[in-house]
Design a protein around this nucleic acid. Sequence first.
DNA 1: ACCTGAACACCGTTCAAGT
DNA 2: ACCTGAACACCGTTCAAGT
Lengths: 187, 187
Amino acid sequence: MPTPERTSLDAIVEAARTIVESQGLAQLTMQAVAERVGVRAPSLYKRVRNRDALVQLVTEATLLDLERDLAAVEVVPEPGRMLAGLAHALRAFAHAHPVTYHLIFTSAPAPGGPDPDLLARVAAPVLRVAAELAGPAHALEAARTVTAWAHGFISMELAGAFNLGGDVDTAYEYGLTRIATALASPA
Amino acid sequence: MPTPERTSLDAIVEAARTIVESQGLAQLTMQAVAERVGVRAPSLYKRVRNRDALVQLVTEATLLDLERDLAAVEVVPEPGRMLAGLAHALRAFAHAHPVTYHLIFTSAPAPGGPDPDLLARVAAPVLRVAAELAGPAHALEAARTVTAWAHGFISMELAGAFNLGGDVDTAYEYGLTRIATALASPA
DNA sequence: ACCTGAACACCGTTCAAGT
DNA sequence: ACCTGAACACCGTTCAAGT
């Protein structure tokens, strides 16, 4: 005789995201998630293989949100300004979801990592501007350069690595304009 | 009546580094460390406050090694080539110690993070080239730009985030020369 | 003064038993 | 078909008792 479902995969992932973001990855226990969705810990295993898989689901949900935010950046004709829009959107996203942002770049395509198609969709807008700035022949390398810089900057910022004083916002703008012009100048 | 010491703080940290690097952070258990140094887990608490403190000690030991490697980079007159030397040394270090490298940039100056003096010493060579390239007025921002790019690149590389094909070494060289010239050109 | 076994609270995960 | 309590193995950590 069927028992009515008392929760759902979506509710579980949502609960996990909330816990991770508000209390850190270490506090993401199966018991905490279970309590939040109103069920006992063993029941979670009906919908999620194990804790690692749940972390993976949280990562993919975060990637979907990031894809949405980057796709929503207003398209402007000048590639330099377009790049700035994407860079600021990425940084704003990271500030809004610091823990899950860190998850995205940490648990990359391990065995069972995020869907490669999803990763490609997230990267698409950056690849587009990179091609405009550096030319199609160098699009991939240029995209990797900007992405590496932006992610490195943001992750160091979130980790508190910029502790020698100076204005962090200014440093972000400085790096952004330097890189934009560097990629735009002829090889 | 005193009991002879059966291990030392150094041996404990060394054991922890070996475990972390060969099996990952999750496998760094107090029991695994204890077994490796020939003692029972509770004895570790005579020399280390707790597991978090041990991770912190591993991080600082790694930073010391990185400081040594960066300080050992041959000094050359052209700042562009000097920057390349530092960038390659950093990447080589990360490839040799991927897990502990990740630790460095992750557990930054949290409450009880690494010694700020040590962090400053590690950053010193980069700050020096940055000042030469971009001028003293922009040294800090320039240093942050290169460091962010290099760290971002390396951490994405280690996470397997460069999965769209293309040669990763080439992309590193591409980004390096672009950034070096960008920082050297007048504001 | 250092080391240990025993103990505690807390994990992730499995499974037989309920409905 | 889903949910649960009980159980297991395994953590980190404390502490009284040994030497």
